[in-house]
């Protein structure tokens, strides 16, 4: 991080030194990545050894090698891919619907104190309702089909997006509003050139949290009466005590969740290059 910042400064160092820095930067990146995998690797190794030695009940806690074997089987049969595809599709639709509405509501409520007074109390009340409490109602209203599932996911991803967009708009520096007035920004320019870029860090946070909640909602939706999806796969395997399949499902959720989060983070890093905030160095 520090290396990258030094290179960003306007005075460009000589090419040779720059190359050295790049090499050093790369080795630092590798070290950081190694540090991240160290703990899981050690834990999995201990777990595997304990499993092989017969210290673990395979029904409750199958060894990592067995889980891996199950993963290969499920992948080879195409079962996993089809379940994951359906799940991802539901999560995406739910997120787009909920997140999109959350963004719109956040902007609308953020802009006007009157709308805030009108809508915010009700929205905050709805926010506290748990998925599990609402799921039966959604199934009652919309049936077992896709609609109830997607709506449940959308309900979850609406709120992080709404809250963070609202917060982002309200935290725009008032001094920059004065600048915009002096420079004669039109109303549209005020939104597109000041408010949206200024609240982008918060909006990104909203996106990341929303995606997280979308996965969470997905599992609930798929476990409550469904015949497809990773959530169904887990639930189905549980009733047959196929613990390895349960583990594969959980790991797939974790990996896909982390990957989508990393993707958004990458996008965030590119779009928010201008930010000058504490990056965690020095501790």
């Amino acid at each position: 991080m520090l290396e990258a910042r030094i290179e960003n400064t306007a005075t460009s160092p000589s090419i040779k030194r720059k190359k050295q820095r790049q090499r050093r930067g790369l080795s630092i990146q590798i070290t950081n990545a190694m540090l991240g995998v160290l703990l899981p690797v050690v834990l999995i190794t201990i777990w595997e050894i304990a499993g092989v030695m017969g210290a673990l009940n395979p029904i409750l806690l199958p060894a990592p090698s067995m889980i891996l074997q199950e993963f290969i089987n499920l992948s080879a049969s195409g079962e996993l891919a089809s379940h994951l595809g359906i799940s991802a599709w539901r999560a995406l639709l739910g997120f787009l619907l909920g997140g999109g509405l959350g963004l719109a509501a956040g902007i609308w409520v953020g802009f006007s104190i009157k709308t805030e007074r009108l809508l915010d109390p009700s929205l905050q009340m709805l926010r506290t309702l748990p998925h599990l409490a609402l799921a039966p109602l959604f199934i009652l209203w919309f049936g077992f089909g896709e609609t109830s599932k997607i709506l449940l996911i959308a309900k979850g991803s609406f709120f992080p997006m709404y809250v963070n967009t609202f917060l982002g708009i309200r935290s725009v520096d008032g001094k920059l509003f004065d600048v915009a007035r002096v420079l004669h920004f039109t109303k549209w320019q005020l939104i597109s050139k000041l408010i949206v870029p200024a609240s982008l860090p918060n909006i990104f946070l909203g996106v990341r949290l929303s995606i997280g909640v979308a996965w969470l909602g997905l599992v609930v939706a798929e476990m409550m009466g469904s015949t497809s999806g990773v959530g169904f796969m887990i639930n189905d395997a549980r009733s047959f005590s196929l613990t390895t399949v349960v583990f594969v499902g959980i790991i797939v959720f974790a990996v896909v969740g982390k990957l989508t989060d990393s993707l958004v983070k990458l996008l965030e890093k590119r779009l928010l290059r201008w930010q000058d905030s504490f990056k965690g160095g020095g501790f």
Partner: peptide, 14 residues
């Protein structure tokens, strides 16, 4: 009427 504030007040993202 151009106005210059005590602080530069630049848009940090530009």
């Amino acid at each position: 009427k151009g106005f210059i504030f005590q602080e530069p007040r630049l848009f940090p993202w530009l």
